[in-house]
């Protein structure tokens, strides 16, 4: 309880600092204060486009997250089974890790148009995180336990559940938490560049064009909130594995 109160106090302190700074700057275009942001958020929430954007962006990002995760885990399993496949994938994984998201976004815009840009970018950002963590987890599996499973001819699904999964869960927990945050960051960035209609990224872009800093902050708060809720749901599920 003390911990929660401490955290709440810290948040309130930063909101106050923000409000005081906004009052000092006294220019809504340069810095909208928290009250202006709440006003903008209330205004946005009354428009049907806001909810459509929230649902559309969240869905696209979550689909990208799921695709990237599934692909990362599946390819990590294959790479673990065959070292040659791991070597084959290394350059692609290194490229996905180091090439800026913006470069991919522009390339994907040329290839596919803006429609599903955030989904693809999310998958591309999430894939190396899940792939590398899963591979590390699999590589750390106790060889003696695998030998035991071989000797007893343990059924594959039981080997997965009793030997591999306990080893992988800590890696999954770290990877999923990192990946969900990265998904929203990269997905929204992709939408800002690609501007598919009825998305949060498009809303952010329009706020910039019309110098509506209050709306810009409001959209940002919405993104932070959605990412926070998704992370909590994910943590809840992971804690039960």
């Amino acid at each position: 309880m003390k911990k929660i109160a401490g955290r709440a106090a810290a948040v309130i302190a930063w909101i106050l600092i923000w409000q005081v700074t906004a009052l000092i700057v006294h220019n809504q275009i340069l810095l909208a204060g928290p009250l202006d942001t709440v006003k903008a958020l209330r205004y946005l929430a009354k428009t049907p486009d806001f909810w459509q954007s929230v649902v559309s962006t969240t869905l696209r990002i979550l689909i990208g997250f799921a695709l990237g995760s599934a692909l990362g885990i599946a390819l990590a399993c294959l790479a673990y089974k065959d070292r040659r496949f791991e070597i084959f994938l290394q350059p692609m994984v290194a490229a996905l890790k180091s090439v800026p998201v913006a470069s991919f976004v522009i390339l994907l815009l040329i290839w596919f148009g803006p429609g599903n840009i955030s989904t693809i970018i999310c998958a591309m950002v999430v894939f190396p995180i899940l792939y590398l963590n899963s591979l590390e987890g699999l590589a750390g599996t106790d060889k003696k336990m695998l030998e035991m499973a071989k000797v007893f001819r343990m059924p594959t699904e039981r080997k997965l559940f009793y030997i591999y999964l306990p080893q992988l869960v800590p890696f999954f927990k770290g990877a999923f938490k990192l990946a969900i945050g990265m998904s929203f960051k990269s997905g929204i960035a992709a939408e800002v560049i690609g501007q598919p209609l009825h998305t949060i990224g498009n809303g952010l872009y329009l706020s910039k064009i019309y110098l509506e800093t209050g709306e810009l902050f409001a959209w940002t708060i919405v993104v932070v909130l959605i990412a926070f809720i998704c992370e909590k749901i994910l943590s809840f599920i992971l804690a039960r594995i």
């Binding site: 030998e147 035991m148 007893f152 343990m154 039981r158 009793y162």
Partner: peptide
């Protein structure tokens, strides 16, 4: 070579159907 987090019964049952 037992699975530490599972009980004795599960450790025996897990190896065979």
């Amino acid at each position: 070579r037992l699975c530490d987090d599972f009980d004795a019964v599960t450790n025996v049952c897990m190896v065979s159907r």
